[in-house]
Simulated assay, not measured.
Amino acid sequence: MKKIFYTALAACVLTQGRDVSAAQHCLRYEPVVVALSGILVRRTYPGAPNYESIKDGDQPETGYYLKLQSPVCVKAEEKDESSDHDDIKEVQLVLDIKQYATLRPKLGKSISLSGQLFEGFNGHHHTSVLLTVTKDQSISKIKQ
């Protein structure tokens, strides 16, 4: 009986150390809704035509990003064409105009948002994983 207890205790300690199966604790891509917390920041990256340098003539693309409180990992389903990603520290937010206006006063502050994750797939995606923010729940219940 003692051996079973100590084995279970060791498993709990290992789980707290986050070295168990990382995939178990990873977030999933859409359609799963996830909640993320962090600092809301505004960033500008080079856009069209070359997505390399605003100074050399690329259009600036400014958007909102969530700098995460703690890094996360995202695990793709086997049937998905998406990839797994580890150590995600920042996600680009996909917002509509009303959401941008609602979030603007929260820039630089700690907030929580919910929505669906997807993998970046074109030049307008400036992080490897993006969050499409849920229109109703997330914005109306911003946690500070």
Rank of each mutant, 00 (worst) to 15 (best):
S21C: 12
R43T: 09
K75W: 02
E81K: 10
S112M: 12
A8C: 11
S110Q: 13
I142E: 08
N122Y: 03
Y51D: 03
S138P: 03
R18P: 12
S53P: 01
Q99I: 03
L130K: 00
K143A: 02
I39Y: 07
K2R: 14
A8Y: 07
S110I: 07
I39S: 07
E52M: 11
A101P: 00
Y29D: 03
I111G: 01
T7V: 05
L113R: 06
Q144R: 12
L66P: 13
I4R: 09
D86S: 14
T127K: 05
D80V: 06
M1C: 10
I39A: 08
N50V: 13
D84R: 12
E78P: 10
P105E: 08
I97T: 09
C73R: 09
F118S: 01
S82N: 15
Q144E: 04
L14I: 00
G57C: 05
G63V: 08
V13T: 04
I111A: 03
E78I: 12
V129C: 05
E81G: 13
E61R: 00
V13P: 00
P71D: 13
S140D: 06
C12R: 13
L27Y: 02
E61L: 07
L131R: 10
Y65C: 00
C26F: 15
K109N: 13
S83K: 12
G63R: 15
Q24A: 12
G17M: 14
L27M: 02
Q92W: 06
T134Q: 09
N122K: 02
N122H: 04
L14D: 00
L14G: 00
S140M: 03
N50C: 12
Y64H: 02
R28W: 06
E81D: 12
E81I: 10
N122C: 06
G123Q: 08
A35T: 15
Q59D: 00
A22M: 10
S70Y: 10
L68G: 01
K79C: 07
P31Q: 09
Y100D: 11
H25S: 11
Q24Y: 13
D136T: 14
S110H: 08
T134K: 06
Y100C: 12
V72M: 01
A8M: 14
L113H: 02
M1D: 15
Q59C: 07
A23C: 15
I142V: 04
G115Q: 05
S37V: 03
Q92F: 09
D80Q: 06
Y51I: 05
A11R: 10
S114I: 05
Y65S: 00
T134P: 04
V74C: 03
S37I: 04
T102H: 02
T44W: 04
A22Y: 06
S140H: 02
K67H: 14
K109R: 06
D84S: 09
K143E: 10
Q59A: 11
Y51G: 09
F121N: 09
V13F: 09
D96S: 08
A101T: 03
S53T: 07
C26I: 01
I54M: 07
Q99V: 02
Y29W: 07
D19K: 01
D56F: 06
H25Y: 15
E30Y: 04
T132C: 01
S110Y: 03
P105M: 10
K109E: 13
V91H: 00
G47A: 15
G47E: 02
S21E: 06
